[in-house]
């Protein structure tokens, strides 16, 4: 991987919890690098520890062992350079779409006019113009996830973590969201770490796929996907890669 700049690196990350007086490993000795501006997919079966790993990268949880480095420096605690789109809806229900999207810069003390401009740009980008004044309860699941994505971008993070953002959507919406997230990524180059348990989604979106094992999660394999974008999900090459990964995947418990 010469010529590619390492943006984020995970070194010997492990996480354990105590459950009913017994230690319980969620994540075990995870090592990999993420390159600048790449679309990295973390693929793993249910409950394997994907969310735990993202929480560690975003600084929400402290690992029992290991370090996260951003541009070579150790990351401690939450860092505005690392943004997150959550698995569950995390919109503030008492705020409108616009207020939700601008909340990050607002907390950082950015002037209203400026943050509104940025927010509007991303609201338009995710196709929600006209819904700025709606409240989350008035939106569909897909629209809420769009707001979550616009919100994460408005914070202008260097790395965006996405935790199964389309997991709760119906298949049709999911396809169109996958297409859109790819377009957004192409127009706004950021490093993305995208978590999913869906192999097709992984192969469709990823520059590289990090395949995780069952719990305790560790890295089983890393795949480079060199197919041109947008990818044809029924091309023989796509299906071959998909099968290869699928054969190597642990069944969810």
């Amino acid at each position: 991987m010469d010529g590619k700049k390492v943006k984020l690196s995970l070194e010997h990350i492990s996480q354990s919890y105590v459950l009913n007086n017994r230690a319980f490993d969620a994540v075990q000795d995870i090592n990999f690098d993420v390159y600048d501006s790449e679309f990295l997919v973390l693929l793993g079966p249910g409950y394997c520890g994907k969310t735990v790993l993202l929480n560690i990268i975003s600084g929400l949880e402290e690992p029992v062992d290991g370090t996260v480095r951003l541009d070579g420096e150790v990351v401690k605690g939450s860092d505005p350079r690392i943004g997150m789109v959550f698995q569950k809806t995390s919109l503030l229900p008492w705020k409108t779409v616009m207020e939700n999207v601008e909340v990050g810069p607002k907390m950082a003390g950015v002037a209203k006019e400026e943050r509104r401009k940025t927010a509007q740009k991303y609201i338009d980008l995710v196709g929600l113009q006209g819904f700025e004044k709606s409240y989350p309860t008035q939106l569909s699941g897909g629209m809420k996830q769009r707001v979550g994505i616009a919100r994460a971008y408005t914070n202008s993070p260097e790395i965006l973590l996405m935790d199964e953002p389309f997991g709760a959507l119906d298949a049709q919406t999911r396809y169109s969201m996958e297409e859109e997230i790819q377009k957004i990524w192409q127009s706004e180059k950021r490093t993305i770490i995208f978590v999913t348990n869906n192999i097709e989604e992984a192969v469709y979106l990823g520059d590289r796929i990090v395949l995780l094992t069952n719990r305790p999660a560790h890295v089983k394999a890393i795949y480079d996907i060199d197919l041109p974008r947008p990818r044809d999900t029924v091309s023989p090459e796509f299906l071959r890669i998909r099968k290869e990964i699928s054969d190597n995947t642990d069944l969810a418990l």
């Binding site: 975003s58 939450s78 505005p80 690392i82 959550f86 809806t89 990050g104 950082a108």
Partner: peptide, 13 residues
């Protein structure tokens, strides 16, 4: 909701 708290944390609040 813990998700809301986590979100605010990732904003650096």
């Amino acid at each position: 909701s813990p998700v809301l708290i986590n979100f605010a944390k990732t904003c650096g609040a």
